Amino acid sequence: MNYATRFLAISLAIQIGGCAYEPKKVEASRPLVNPATSTELQAMPANLQQALNTLPQGAALSTNSTTFTLGQRYVSALGSECIELLFNSDQFHSQRSVACKIAEQWYLIPQLEQASVSNLLADQ
């Protein structure tokens, strides 16, 4: 009985002490992600709107001098239907992007600019 009372008192003291402790506030000195240069969404061309609704993964589309391949479809964290796009401007240059459907229209979503790992390392 004496052991159980001591255990109960110690565990109660630890719980009360843990609730009274406030963790140290930490602020980042460098951003992990840089803000996008433009917050305006660019609508996909009108002739591609229906194709983005119906074509399957792997289908290729062309507009002007750009060809792109449809990638995987998914639902974004905001609940929008999205599809990955692989753009091919010429033989040696390709870029990944995403188009999302917002209010029944497809928009090209700007990419986040990621900071390099060397910029994230703390100064010593």
Rank of each mutant, 00 (worst) to 15 (best):
P45C: 15
A122V: 12
C100Y: 06
S38L: 03
L112W: 08
A9H: 08
V98H: 00
K24I: 07
A20P: 01
R6W: 02
A115H: 10
P110I: 15
L85V: 09
L112V: 12
I16H: 04
C82I: 02
Y107M: 06
L86F: 06
Q105I: 14
L112C: 06
P45K: 10
T37W: 04
A122H: 07
R96I: 05
Q57M: 13
S89W: 09
I109Y: 14
N53G: 03
C82M: 04
K101V: 06
F92L: 07
A4D: 11
G79W: 02
E104K: 15
R96C: 02
E84V: 03
N64F: 14
P31M: 10
L32Q: 03
Q124L: 09
K24L: 13
G79V: 08
V26I: 13
L55N: 06
S29V: 08
S65V: 15
A9Q: 12
Q124D: 12
L12K: 05
Q57H: 09
Q114E: 15
Q114G: 13
R73N: 06
Q111H: 11
N2E: 09
E27T: 12
A4L: 13
Y74H: 11
T67W: 00
T67K: 10
G17M: 07
A59L: 01
Y21F: 15
N47V: 06
Q124A: 08
Q114R: 14
L48N: 01
